[in-house]
Design a protein around this nucleic acid. Sequence first.
DNA 1: CCCTCTCTTTTACATGCCGTAGAAATATTG
DNA 2: CAATATTTCTACGGCATGTAAAAGAGAGGG
Lengths: 123, 123
Amino acid sequence: MASLGDLERSVMDLLWDSAEPLTANDLRDDLAALGTDAKELAVTTVLTVLARLEKKGLVERERTTRPHRYAASSSREDHTVGLLNDALGTAQDREAVLARFIGGISPDEAASLRAILDSVKSA
Amino acid sequence: MASLGDLERSVMDLLWDSAEPLTANDLRDDLAALGTDAKELAVTTVLTVLARLEKKGLVERERTTRPHRYAASSSREDHTVGLLNDALGTAQDREAVLARFIGGISPDEAASLRAILDSVKSA
DNA sequence: CCCTCTCTTTTACATGCCGTAGAAATATTG
DNA sequence: CAATATTTCTACGGCATGTAAAAGAGAGGG
């Protein structure tokens, strides 16, 4: 899967957090408002990364409206799941990895994992 | 964490699969033997990637022996766990991600996950 | 002690990704 | 149609990676 640069990541975070599709100008403003960075990027910069994200299949663009509007093509969670599966690979050592992973999580999370597993079983 | 290029990845795979530390020449030969690629890289190429992997903290080098010998500094599984945690990030939506992830795994794997969780609980 | 052989370090270059944005083309609107 | 907004094209610097030649360094034979 495609890994993201810092700016690409920031843009995706904004898109994921937005209920509505956003324009490049929206994103430029939101990026400037982030932190105390006071970035103030050029709009063309934002458009470039949006085009790249679109090519990577991470965002979809509405070309019908005039300021084009962009939205994430899948949820942040689904994207992260994709990353997880990438990291796990098609390898056969998945179980060994999962065992170690679970060994490192908090008891709380272990409990919710168990709950999730149970709900899946019953389904 | 550091992501790996194709050649770096191949080298790490060989080191992970080897019980013994390997020399650059060993690795060059092993790489050439991989698949039907018939790569036949220069040894300096292998040394360069080994130096980079060492800088990334992924391999350790024995400088005492004359052909230096290289070994992975952590197991493949531990490395993958690191990748998983990177992918999960420090985000707050870990549970949502894990829920989706588990929804996508095979029943077999769900069963072994449950077993792993149970063994952790009892520990 | 020097030569040669082997091994390591240094330096280099091409490619591709990413941040960044000006210039040019195109659409909107008054 | 002219001015303005929006998008596309083109570009460049930096960094990671694959690739390796060139140069430096240690070690044994003569």
